[in-house]
Design a protein around this nucleic acid. Structure first.
Length: 583
DNA sequence: GTCACGTGCGCC
DNA sequence: AAAGGGCGCACGTGAC
């Protein structure tokens, strides 16, 4: 029985070719041509559940999904997701990642650039040197043979890394993320047009015809204009707003919210309200829904590995920035529930686990890590403890927060030592890694030019070289935490996906589905009667992720899990998810 | 008209 | 007090 099977779909039509492989990528027998690729894949899956090997999950699996049984596929190896992880291991960061690029490198041929993500391949691919699909193979190359060769090479490269076990896990987790992303795009997030409409009506008034301005915005805009002297004013133009305030004798340098909140002038609250509503109208209004949330599902596109830290990015619809107020529109189907789980205080817990700092471990053991920190070092002032710790992880050094960081440095030397070592590595031009070994990008050539000889210790002032150096330090400081949190989250969704698939269901259509993932939070859409099974799956997956990524750490990564009909209800009224631990 | 950029704000 | 990391998106602005 093959451990793996490589898949190449035909350019058009439902057929394709399969090549059984040994675990190390060696072909077992001859490739098999099939007329119905989805049926053949489903048959293999039922028989032996191999790890599927393909050029890119979003394309191959995305096309198979509609024709696969509801049980879908368990595991894959995504060559295009794995390639940049391995390039990072080999000090070759940033090279093109397509199958064609990897194949060209393997053969010492000119390497094709990656196509811009999201563009239709046929549009962007004006040159005729490479395939019209996104594999970027030259026309002479056989896609299946190229896939088999590149995959075997990737397996060899994984084995050649310093810690093959970790990198193998990282590659598997990233590939599993590809499966999840494709399925979430396919299944969509349940979205109630009725609730969304009601929200928009309450906030903005009736939907304007012809894309005009909603009534509430028009009247706010008029009131604002009157409050600022009565001259015509576009509230969306920061320049005009600043000039209008100046004419009222108020000198501002920016119109940011935090400035306006402290401003004692009748125009300030009007402008704040205008900004709030106009943003909802522009970013998540009727036009947004027409485009992204049709037929009861919000279907964004997720970009696995779209952030260098391993976080996902999204393309279109702002999937990872759904405003809190609109979460009321995320509503389960009748008879179904949303199981919403978020990992509270994930990043400080990651820091505690990575650094093994005894004080931080103690602080987290009681449940609320910030409160524990506060009891230990800030006379119980939780807000200051939280501010200080976030400052330490983000690189804040100035102002009051800088002093809080100094307190933390004395009380939690191991934890602070870890982030500060990461910062120093970055400042001196080095790279840092996540817990599973994801490598951060090296500094750019221009960074090296600019900062040459201008080490942070030799700061002569606030010249741009020193600023760039510090900025690089903040980036690497944060990278070790953010990227390791992403490691954990990927392991979480991979394990959760596997457990959800194992939950027995009455009928095929009634399966729990992972429908949302946002850095440290997941939503599962499930038949109501399976809610408890899903809760268990979430908790078990979190525990498994902890063990896989952090080994024997005593640090817990508790998942705050709620079952509800709407996302808003599940999240409660807290305006700070870190505070959820309080109640 | 398109494009790149800056501003500002949503999320983590 | 406003020199904290990572994103995506809409808008205004200025260059072409």
């Amino acid at each position: 029985m093959p451990a793996r099977v490589a898949v190449a779909a035909d350019q058009d039509g439902p057929g394709g070719r399969l090549q059984p492989l040994a675990e190390d990528g060696t072909p077992l027998g001859e490739p098999v041509r099939v007329r119905d690729l989805a049926a053949a894949v489903a048959e293999h899956e039922a028989a032996e559940a191999p790890r599927w090997v393909w050029a890119a999950t979003d394309e191959v699996y995305g096309r198979l999904l509609p024709r696969l049984p509801a049980s879908r596929l368990a595991r894959c190896h995504d060559v295009k997701l794995v390639e940049p992880l391995l390039l990072g291991q080999e000090d070759r960061y940033g090279q093109p990642r397509s199958l064609g690029a990897a194949w060209a490198r393997l053969h010492g041929l000119p390497v094709p650039a990656d196509l811009p993500e999201g563009s239709a391949a046929s549009d962007a691919d004006q040159d005729t040197l490479f395939a019209p699909d996104r594999t970027r193979l030259p026309p002479g190359a056989d896609p299946l043979q190229a896939l088999v060769a590149v995959h075997a090479e990737q397996q060899r490269r994984i084995a050649a890394t310093a810690e093959p076990g970790r990198i193998r896990l990282l590659c598997a987790a990233e590939s599993a993320g590809g499966l999840v992303a494709a399925e979430m795009a396919f299944d969509g997030l349940p979205w109630s047009a009725e609730v969304h409409d009601q929200l928009l009506y309450d906030l903005l008034g009736s939907r304007p015809g012809g894309g005009g301005q909603p009534a509430k915005l028009a009247s706010l805009s008029y009131e604002l204009q009157q409050a600022l002297g009565g001259k015509p004013l576009n509230p969306d133009s920061p320049g005009q707003v600043l000039r209008a305030f100046a004419e009222q004798g108020i000198s501002l340098t920016t119109t940011r919210n935090w400035v306006l909140r402290d401003l004692d002038h009748p125009a300030a609250p009007l402008l704040l309200r205008y900004k709030e509503l106009s943003r909802i109208h522009a970013a998540h209004g009727w036009a947004w829904r027409d485009t992204w949330a049709r037929d009861g599902r919000f279907r964004p596109e997720y970009v696995v590995g779209g952030v260098v830290s391993g976080r996902w990015a999204s393309r279109g619809g702002g999937a990872l920035q759904i405003p809190r107020i609109l979460r009321a529109a995320v509503v389960a189907d009748p008879g179904w529930r949303l199981v919403v789980a978020d990992a509270g205080q994930l990043e400080p817990r990651v820091l505690a686990a990575m650094s093994n700092d005894p004080g931080m471990i103690r602080a987290g053991a009681a449940g609320d890590l910030y409160a524990g920190l506060a009891a230990d070092a800030f006379k119980g002032d939780r807000a200051r403890a939280k501010l200080g710790l976030l400052g330490a992880m983000y690189g804040q050094t100035s102002g009051e927060t800088g002093q809080l960081v100094a307190v933390l440095r004395r009380r939690f030397p191991q934890a602070m030592g870890l982030v500060e070592a990461a910062a120093r590595t970055g400042e001196s031009g080095g790279v840092v890694r996540s817990q599973l070994g994801r490598v951060c990008p090296p500094p750019s050539a221009s960074w090296l030019d600019l900062t040459e000889g201008a080490g942070p210790a030799s700061d002569t002032g606030d010249d741009s070289a020193a600023r760039d150096t510090r900025s690089r330090g903040r980036f690497t400081r944060n990278f070790v935490i953010q990227a390791s949190a992403a490691d954990w989250a990927l392991a979480l969704i991979a394990g959760l996906r596997r457990r959800l698939a194992a939950i027995p269901v009455a009928t095929d259509g009634d399966r729990p589905r992972l429908v949302f993932f946002q850095h440290d939070e997941v939503i599962v859409h499930t038949p109501a009667q399976l809610s408890d099974a899903v809760r268990t799956a979430v908790a078990d997956a979190g525990e498994e992720a902890r063990r896989l990524v952090f080994g024997a750490t005593p640090v817990q990564f508790p998942l705050d899990t709620h079952v509800a009909e709407s996302y808003l209800d599940a999240k409660g009224g807290s305006d700070d998810e870190d505070e959820d631990a309080d109640g």
